[in-house]
Design a protein around this nucleic acid. Structure first.
Lengths: 246, 246
DNA sequence: CTTGCCGCAGTGTCGGACGCTAGAGGCCGG
DNA sequence: CCGGCCTCTAGCGTCCGACACTGCGGCAAG
């Protein structure tokens, strides 16, 4: 905590500031919700200028460990899922992953999501899922709407399983994969129908609390997607122009 | 690109600098490997001071989109896997995910990894995996070594499948889960044996290019782990003290 | 006790300065 | 003519000081 910690560690001062605060968070000395001292005070603590402190804070901020609800308040926070999803999605897009890679993983995540959702979803959740599905049916043939609603459907299913790890892991992958629908639909218009069929069957299985059936239909659904990708010759195509990510 | 872009967008200047450069990267105007202008020059471009530019760069750096191979060179780079893994692992630890959540996902990722590894691994890769396995056998009963080698075994298997998406998705999860071995081993010492048995069977299946068998043994292996977790009453325990992450 | 105003502290941004070092370019020897 | 060594400089990391703007707490008035 003293000002001379810098002698013990190499690296840049701003990095050390970030690391030290990060360590305090991970160690539990600082808990989510805690407010951090002002920049000047932090500077005094670490024996560096405000500019240096600020650079360190920018890192922590971008890591999601720290957050400014208002310009006057700087507090510790647990990293938000959407932030992680964005980062992971961007990274995968930049590393030019193929549809095959995305699909292989989705082939196991979505069935799992469907299964545990069927086992654990609350009745109202199933109803609200039905609502999303109705919208998707209504969107018949409109690609942009269809994609957005499909994403929402799958994300909702995943959330109903109450497994945050699965949610985190699948989200960026599913996003990238399903967006490929843009390039499949023109070749395989019958997909809109099959998608709706699969979704209804998943919902039905959820209503019956039939995990196995939900899982089976989810698998079928993703297999179908792959058939479409094959028709469109997308198997080893690169998933997405990264700029398409928000 | 002119200095007055700030009027069109809200938010802080440093954030806009980061966003603009990020957009250029995602859009492909800047490709991985490209060198960025100096801080002063960037400042001139955006009409802000060097301090402000530096804060923006710290964000990009921490996002992994930009990187300094030497203090004199600032270049665009695709985010590195280990960085993403660390962030995701930290986030999951901070959000206090349970072993159950980790395990459920691992139950589908590791079998998939084993299957595609069996189908795609090169002979030498299998040999080097055998080597890791031999070390694990030799480490008999030493928990720390066992965990490290087990992690390495599974990570290697995943790499052999040549699916970067799977690699990215499973790594932080597997890391957190397998580390739970620390709390299982004392209750279920027979685990060392069963682990070795499973690993050998996976390797054997890989040698035979038998994806199904590899998958089956991987599943068995992870199921076993769960039995151990149950014995140790860890099902809904929190995975890990975040400070234990490097 | 509530409400509105005021002052202040702290943030965002700026400009300038300085030591240090990696790497470019010149110098020298082979 | 070419390669290795030395010098020198551009650019980075860090520091200092300054100023406008704005939430927020405190105070006074209702």
């Amino acid at each position: 905590m003293s000002a001379d910690f810098r002698t013990s560690q190499g690296g840049y001062a701003y990095h050390q500031v970030a690391e030290e605060i990060e360590a305090q968070i991970l160690r539990g000395d600082l808990k989510p919700g805690d407010q951090l001292p002002g920049e000047a005070e932090l500077g005094a603590m670490f024996g560096v200028t405000r500019s240096t402190v600020r650079e360190g804070l920018r890192q922590l901020e971008s890591d999601g460990l720290v957050h400014r609800p208002s310009p006057r308040r700087l507090e510790v926070r647990v990293p938000q899922a959407d932030q992680l999803v964005t980062r992971a999605g961007r990274a995968m897009a930049l590393m030019k992953v193929t549809f095959r890679e995305l699909w292989e993983v989705t082939m196991v995540t979505e069935p799992l999501a469907a299964r545990i959702a069927a086992e654990r979803a609350a009745e109202e959740e199933i109803e609200s899922l039905q609502l999303v599905h109705a919208q998707l049916v209504a969107a018949e043939g409109q690609m942009a709407h269809t994609i957005a609603l499909d994403e929402q459907f799958h994300t909702s299913v995943a959330e109903m399983g109450r497994n945050r790890v699965l949610g985190l892991a699948r989200e960026p992958i599913a996003l990238l994969l399903f967006r490929g629908f843009t390039r499949i639909a023109p070749f395989a218009p019958q997909f809109y129908r099959r998608q709706i069929e699969a979704h209804s069957n998943i919902i039905a299985a959820m209503r019956d609390r039939d995990g196995d059936r939900a899982e089976k239909w989810a698998r079928k659904h993703i297999e179908d997607f792959w058939r479409g990708a094959q028709i469109a010759r997308l198997e080893d195509a690169i998933a997405l122009n990264p700029s398409a990510l928000s």
